[in-house]
Structure formats: C-alpha cells, structure tokens
C-alpha cells in the first residue's frame, strides 16, 4: 500500500496537517504568525547546511528553527524591537541559506522543492519522521494544554496559579520547530506557516471553546491536505500550493458562512455574538 505514491503523499499531508492545526490555534491566539514565519524561513539555512555536509535535512531544519525560536523566546522582554530582530534574524538565515545552496552544484534546481514542498516524493522514512513529529507535537500540546491556555489568556493569572509562563511558551517553541521541520517535505518553508494559521483562522467561527476550535482546525487541515493533493493530481498543479489554496477556499467559505449566519440571527433579534468574531 505504501508503494503507491498517492498513499504516501496522503499520509504525509494528513500527518503535517494534524500537527500544524492545533499548534496553529496557539499561533493565532498569541499572535505569533510573524514569529512562525521567520522561524520557518530561517529553516532554509538548516536545509542548506545539511545539503552541504550531507546529513538529514530534517535534522538541519529542526536544529536551526529550534535555535532561532529559543533565541526569541528567551530574548523576549529584553528587547523592545523583537519584531524587527525577528525579521532580521529570520531573513539573514534565509539569505545565508540561499547563498550556501548556490555553491552546491546540482542543488539549485531542487531548491523549489524546499521552498514549496515536494510531497509526491516523500519516502517511507519521511512518513515515519512526520508521524513521529506529529506524535511529539500532540503529546506536548495535550500534556500542557490547560497551562498553555492559561498563559495565553493572561500570564499573571498563570503565574498566580503556580505556572511559569516562559517555560510554557518554550513548549510551543519546540512544537513549532518540529512542525516546521516535518512540514518542509509537504509544503516547504514558504508555505508551512499557512498550514498553521489558515485552518485555525477558518475554525475560529465554528467552535465556541478553544478545544472545539482546535478540533475543527484539525478537520479543516486534513480536508485541505486530501483535497489539495487530489486537485494537484487532477489539474497537474504544484501540490504544496494546491493544499494551501484549498485551505484558503475553506477559510473564505467559513467567512461567508459566518457573515450569513450573523445577518440571519441579527434579523431575528437573537443573541448572535456568542459564536462569532464578536
């Protein structure tokens, strides 16, 4: 069964979608989208280093995104221009990565695969790594779920309950680095952030609690992966961008759904503010 490339691609896509969606909710709630993007871009340095020294691309990406993310997590509060620093560090790494790649002969053509993913080429080892990553991310999130939520709501409330907000946000940092690393094969460093935030953004209007929103995000992520993959097969389009396009279409659909629901409920004079954008 795993010899069929479509089956392998589906398994890889679903794995990444399931890991990215619940983490993406935190990225949205904590407004970490730019942080995620800079981290993902920085991963290109890891990829180029692993190509240069011939070790696992997964390990290279994980290493760089992890160090980038921890740098920011621990630098938080010490600098006033965190956003700017993030942009500098992220894009400096990406530029360095692109330059290194240009020195390696024969890789330049492959570069596109790391930027937007090459899901049809995933190996059995890749699938194993993706699902191991998925397991780790879900374990971390489920284990720290309430603590993370409380820290997201208000760090002082969390501290008063005996939590250490910094330690909790490091959990998210690790999870983010893992998702970036496993997502490279599927959607690439340029698009991985969209697998995080688009399903979460679409799920916002569907769930009334954080947990429901996260579950809806998982569902939307998986649907995007499956339909995007098939669309790319049928229309012969690049797979990563197709998956992201399907996710974006779902996002638009939920926007329209919310809009119509609100109109309908407001016209009937109902309490419409309970389950929408407020």
């Amino acid at each position: 069964m795993l010899d069929d490339f479509m089956v392998r691609a589906s398994l890889a896509g679903i794995g990444v979608a399931l890991a990215a969606a619940p983490l993406g909710c935190f990225v949205v709630w904590r407004r970490m989208a730019y942080f995620g993007e800079a981290t993902a871009h920085a991963a290109l340095l890891g990829i180029s280093l692993s190509l240069l020294f011939e070790f696992s691309i997964f390990a290279g990406a994980l290493l760089v995104s992890l160090s980038m993310a921890s740098l920011v997590t621990f630098g938080q509060g010490r600098s006033l221009f965190l956003d700017t620093l993030l942009g500098v560090a992220g894009h400096m790494s990406m530029a360095a990565g692109l330059i290194i790649v240009s020195f390696i002969s024969g890789v330049r053509i492959e570069l596109m695969a790391y930027l937007i993913g090459d899901i049809l080429a995933v190996s059995k080892t890749d699938i194993l790594l993706i699902w191991l990553g998925l397991g780790l991310v879900l374990l971390l999130l489920i284990w720290r779920w309430s603590a993370l939520l409380l820290c997201t709501l208000n760090e002082d409330l969390a501290a008063a309950s005996g939590l250490k907000p910094k330690r909790e946000s490091f959990v998210l940092t690790i999870a983010l680095a893992v998702v970036v690393a496993v997502g490279i094969k599927v959607v690439g460093v340029l698009l991985i952030i969209s697998m995080l935030i688009i399903p979460a953004a679409s799920a916002r209007s569907l769930g009334s609690t954080p947990e429901k929103m996260a579950l809806f995000a998982c569902l939307i992520g998986v649907l995007s992966a499956i339909f995007g993959l098939n669309a790319s097969y049928v229309f012969d389009t690049p797979t990563g961008p197709s998956i992201v396009s399907v996710a974006s279409l779902i996002f638009l659909a939920t926007l329209i759904f919310t809009f119509i629901k609100n109109r309908f409920l407001i016209n009937r004079g109902n309490k419409s503010r309970d389950s929408n954008y407020g």
Partner: peptide, 27 residues
C-alpha cells in the same frame, strides 16, 4: 492558594472562550 484578579483581561478575539470553560481553567 492565591486567587488573583488582574487589572485587565484582554482576550484576543481569535480565542473563543465561554465563561464556563474559563472558570474550569483554574488548577
């Protein structure tokens, strides 16, 4: 056991949260 009532609670609008779930978040 410390019960803390903060000065402000700015909840991002992207986070759906019912009062019931919020109350259950206490440790």
């Amino acid at each position: 056991k410390i019960g803390y009532v903060p000065q402000v609670l700015n909840i991002d609008r992207s986070l759906p949260l019912t009062v019931k779930r919020f109350l259950s978040l206490a440790n």
